[in-house]
């Protein structure tokens, strides 16, 4: 990663977080909890993929329609998150695959 990438990434991230800050408080609370969960679960395309900005788009629409955040996500916010990343491999999965691959070749 070049310094330029890092700076560019930070700028984008700051712009993203500014949008989050502009959300009503209930949305902000749920967004932050979701983000924390998603970072731990670790889908590989999370940091620079479209997932997080997409959630903010989705939330902004809900705000404009005058809805509460849980009306949008349902009470089981974790299930919503799991659905969001269902098709993305996580770091853990990629890692586990890479070691089983290495073991496979090491044994030959």
């Amino acid at each position: 990663m070049s310094i330029q990438d890092i700076i560019e990434g930070k700028k984008q991230w700051r712009a993203h977080m500014a949008r989050v800050k502009a959300l009503p408080q209930d949305y902000r609370i749920v967004y932050k909890e979701m983000q924390r969960y998603l970072f731990k679960v670790g889908p590989v395309d999370l940091p620079d993929g479209p997932l997080l900005p997409g959630i903010v788009d989705f939330f902004e629409e809900g705000v404009a329609a005058g809805k509460g955040v849980l009306e949008l996500t349902g009470n089981d916010v974790a299930a919503f998150c799991d659905d969001l990343v269902k098709d993305s491999p996580t770091f853990a999965e990629v890692y586990q695959q890479s070691i089983s691959g290495e073991r496979g070749t090491a044994e030959k």
Binding site: G54, E71, F80
Partner: peptide, 11 residues
């Protein structure tokens, strides 16, 4: 809920 539909649309 809309969230369910959102995840499906995303997919």
């Amino acid at each position: 809920v809309e969230g369910t539909v959102y995840t499906i649309l995303l997919r």
